[in-house]
């Protein structure tokens, strides 16, 4: 029974640590009903795959492109609608999309801290012009 104080203190510490994300100041409460304010390309309506697929599986597509372009030297991508694209994150994806206003905003919203594409891949300087903010429905 002499250990009771230690056991209670230990349990209390455990409870504090486990619940930390809920009350800590570093993780402010988010309104999960609010969708991220994504800026969509104005000059282009079609993507390399249907929106539903891109929303769920763009990373799979990117990984496949990466594998094929870098390792197999196949750089042409024939999309579902027959259009031909260059398998390039910088040239094709970022040719229309803006990294900060599209990729980052959604990744932040979804809590995806993973993609370190940007440690190496660059934002082309050309695509920023001609984009007007438009919220996703």
């Amino acid at each position: 029974m002499r250990d009771r104080i230690w056991i209670i203190a230990g349990l209390a510490l455990f409870a504090v640590v486990v619940t930390a994300p809920f009350w800590s100041e570093r993780t402010p409460a988010k309104d999960l009903t609010k969708v991220p304010n994504l800026v969509l390309p104005v000059n282009q309506k079609d993507c390399v795959a249907p929106v539903s697929y891109m929303r769920a599986s763009h990373m799979v597509l990117l990984l496949r492109w990466r594998e094929e372009a870098v390792r197999q030297g196949q750089r042409r991508y024939v999309a579902f609608d027959g259009k031909v694209y260059d398998k390039s994150l910088t040239k094709t994806c970022l040719g229309c999309h803006n990294k900060e206003q599209f990729c980052d905003r959604c990744h932040t919203y979804a809590g995806v801290s993973g993609p370190y594409c940007w440690n190496c891949h660059n934002q082309p300087q050309t695509n920023v012009a001609g984009i007007s903010p438009r919220s996703m429905p």
Binding site: G73, R75, T90, K91, Y116, N119, C120, H121, N122, Q123, P124, Q125
Partner: peptide
């Protein structure tokens, strides 16, 4: 001056001449 058309590298990887395979393509 970063050339946006070619990736930079990140710390912790090895690199070398690639015979400009991106230009050959």
């Amino acid at each position: 001056h970063i050339n946006p058309d070619f990736p930079t590298r990140t710390k912790g990887v090895v690199e070398k001449c690639n015979f400009c395979e991106e230009r050959l393509a």
